[in-house]
């Protein structure tokens, strides 16, 4: 593989981590959506590039799904839901942005330190793709725990999924990648429909066990 192809693949994977960081510090609902659309766009370009350099045409389908579903349809639908439910005020963060960013840097360092030493047998591209993918996954988890509202959590989850798609395409020749990305799209579509149908509002969307137990009267 020539070094140009490698560098471009690197560039896209690295930008995905960067956009993940950008997701962490958004405090407005609509800008969060825009950054997520960018996140999905970067992942689809990255997958398309992998399809090109790996000569794997089926990966173009995955790229197209990422582009159409996650970069276009879901942001638009979420935008409408937010307007309709009237929840477009600021996002509550559990911890401050400064600490979140520091935590994020720590997680990226951790994933590089974990992934690089144990994948020495693989090619450079696979190794660094995996390190980046793990960073994106961990940053997505961090985002999910640091947001109190349902939309923030859903976007965190979708960014985790983008990281997984990056990892799956990075693992050369992995079968079923397209099927898995379709399965994931169904999952996400259902989550989004769930938010809308069930009208999950700010107050009810915590996954905090204590709040729920208190609600049931199981705790004073």
């Amino acid at each position: 593989m020539d070094s140009f192809a490698l560098d471009v693949a690197h560039l896209f994977a690295g930008s995905l981590v960067l956009v993940s960081f950008m997701l962490l510090y958004q405090d407005r609902m609509f800008s969060l959506l825009n950054i997520f659309a960018l996140h999905a766009f970067v992942v689809s370009v990255s997958v398309a590039w992998q399809a090109h350099i790996q000569n794997a045409p089926h990966l173009y389908i995955t790229a197209a799904i990422a582009l159409v579903v996650k970069a276009i349809v879901i942001p638009i639908v979420l935008h409408r839901i937010i307007v309709r439910l009237g929840i477009h005020r600021n996002i509550e963060n559990v911890v401050g942005i400064g600490q979140t960013m520091l935590g994020g840097i720590g997680l990226v360092a951790l994933s590089i330190m974990v992934m690089l030493p144990i994948t020495t047998a693989e090619g450079t591209l696979v190794r660094e793709d995996l390190a980046f993918a793990l960073s994106v996954i961990l940053l997505g988890l961090l985002m999910m725990v640091s947001r109190r509202n349902a939309v923030g959590q859903v976007i965190g989850f979708m960014s985790i999924e983008n990281g997984l798609i990056l990892a799956a395409t990075g693992a050369k020749g992995m079968p079923l990648v397209v099927e898995i990305s379709v399965a994931f799209s169904i999952l996400i579509a259902l989550i989004v429909i769930g938010i809308f149908l069930f009208r999950i509002r700010e107050r009810f969307d915590s996954v905090d066990l204590h709040a729920l137990d208190r609600f049931r009267g199981e705790r004073p």
């Binding site: 693989e122 990892a167 020749g173 992995m174 069930f198 999950i200 009810f204």
Partner: peptide
């Protein structure tokens, strides 16, 4: 609805992590 949502979020994160593990197994075997 609250129970379903909680199950949904935690279950999805769970299976997302399981998928990453599956990808790593594929890497090891391929």
């Amino acid at each position: 609805l609250e129970a379903a949502w909680k199950y949904f979020i935690l279950g999805s994160v769970g299976i997302a992590l399981a998928l990453f593990g599956t990808i790593l197994v594929y890497l090891a075997s391929s």
